[in-house]
Design a protein around this nucleic acid. Sequence first.
DNA 1: CAAACCGGGAAGGCA
DNA 2: TCCCGGTTTG
Length: 726
Amino acid sequence: MDVTPIIDTLNDAQRQAVTSDNKHILVLAGAGSGKTRVLVHRMAWLIDVQQQAPQSILAVTFTNKAAREMRGRIENMLGIPTRSMWVGTFHGLAHRLLNQHWSEAGLEQNFQILDSDDQQRLVKRIIQGLGMDENRWPAKQAQWFINGQKDEGIRAKFVEDTDDPFIKAHRKIYQAYEDFCKNNSLVDFGELLLRAHEILRDDPNLLQHYQRRFSNILVDEFQDTNTIQYAWLRLLAGEDTAMMVVGDDDQSIYGWRGAKIENIQDFSRAYADTETIRLEQNYRSTGTILQAANAVISRNTGRLGKNLWTSQEDGDPISLYSAFNEIDEARFIAEYVKRRFEQGNNYSESAVLYRSNAQSRVLEEAMLRANIPYRIYGGQRFYERLEIKNALSYLRLCLNRNDDQSFERVVNTPTRGIGNRTLDEVRTVSREQGVSMWQASLKLVDEKTMSARATNALYAFVQLITQLEQAVQGMELEEQAEQAINLTGLVEFHRAEKGEKGQARVDNLQELVSACKAYEADDPDAEVLPQFLAQATLEAGDQQADEHEDALQMMTLHSAKGLEFPLVILAGMEENLFPHSMSADEPGRLEEERRLAYVGITRAEQKLVMTYAECRRIYGDEKFNSVSRFVRDVPNELIEEVRANIKRPSPPGRVRATGGSSRRFSTSDTGMDTGFELGQHVMHPKFGEGVILNFEGHGANARVQVNFHSEGSKWLVVSYARLESI
DNA sequence: CAAACCGGGAAGGCA
DNA sequence: TCCCGGTTTG
């Protein structure tokens, strides 16, 4: 066996991990140290060299994207199909398991998966059904509670029984929700994991079967596992199962959604023979960038310890730009990116990362103005869009009339005269007689208890679905989708909407048909439609389109994890924004913010730029924040401050004036009277250093607003305040 | 029943 | 400031 292609390109630590004979291996993989590569090569090693059967391997990731990439790389490397391997996300694999053992899991064969939107609607209805005050117990919060419990593997009846009214109320909601889901064979995302865990836990034969089958378990991004995921893995790993978990405690940024960074620490305790391998050589970034990253993360406590190094040159210094407001910041970024483009780099080599989505709008406007193509990651995904969910709901109703979620969604979309009164009637009958809303509707139509108008409208809907189902029989998936959007009037409905929005929705519906055309079922023997629908929920789809256009990449720091770019610009490096004010008080959360900073910095390959704004408008009012502590953590000698006056070809006031909407600074050129410029750094005898933010008035009355590093923002009369420019 | 209006809330986002 | 959901109005 020629093992060269598998291990030849690896460094020592990587090779150690790939070829280790140890049963339990913990790979601490720093950013850019080649962790995916280790995982893929390990699988190749197991199959090709150790002659393990592909179906004995289970490899689990968090995102569909990562799973796809892994699959692709295996197929490339080994030239074998990966169908028999269990490679997927936790949820995807759990779904696979429940699909195969639906009966043991106490589900109907084609059980419904609720996405978080469906879940929230349902929780809301449950709260209403319980007669609880919706203002006191918002559905969103209850949903959060329920999911939090499920992440911990806790069923409603095991929720701590206390007098705490909050817990009491939510326990009650959770219980009612759980019962409802059980009775209707509904499974939310958390439930997939929880139930996948339970069927193995409670069925020794089943457990043994899978423990024997999977002699190798590989886990990606292990630091992101939550309690139930970890418990599931431990259950699945039998006596003879070898496990390799790969992760980086320094990149754990999902604690807020249940990830337990402790799992990574627990692993070597749970499996005493664990071999720990550190991947510390970074192949991505320049020395300077790594030094900055190390400096920032070193302030965290309780790390497992890792120090990234590179054989690369130090490279460019880190640029720091102090903008006087977020518009100036965006303008600077646009210019910077444009200049780089003019020097012959693609736009797609640059990324702007920010802490929160709210920051994207101003950036977007600046890019539009500068004619820079951009792509924003995140936001609503394809299968989560309203019009798409509606179309899918019609298809769901074809499969299952009793799907109340879908029924509620589309019964009056497009509007067909079935209003709240009528629906309330349907809901009541449904509740009282314990039947689905569809059956309740049939009854109501039959008995004609309602007004003729309402009865007719409802009857029309019943007819519509019946027709649709017949029309769709035996059709190809894409034709089914086509029928669903045309026959029901969805397309017409959105076409009639005014504005670009309607057109976009029509386009999306067309896109859905294309997606159906391109769809390949996992299991060619089974029905296509149910598979497609489940997949649409499980994999909501990155927003498609324009993937290939050369565009600047814009996204939050969270969604940048796992990516890399030659140029990275970290925008909004300000206290209260990053670290976010909501995380400031709690040490644990602050450390997570710091890890987020670490993730951001380590995305950069060649050049890192950080920007912050002295003044930022958030939710309508102006905030004056000082520069982020994460910037201050970076050693000075790595940073090169970009002076405002060099990079500002036109006075900022002008840029805004032509920009349109925003006019928060005094217009005109009164600024000139004062002898100061916006954004200029000044010194005050008492308040110290500061930055000019705004002007007001003329001549002797002229005032300036200055943001002082020590004192915050103040208005000063120019003729009295002895300001000096510095 | 549908369209206009109003008020509260807004971190991050995978499945 | 913007967006959503609930309420009021036509």
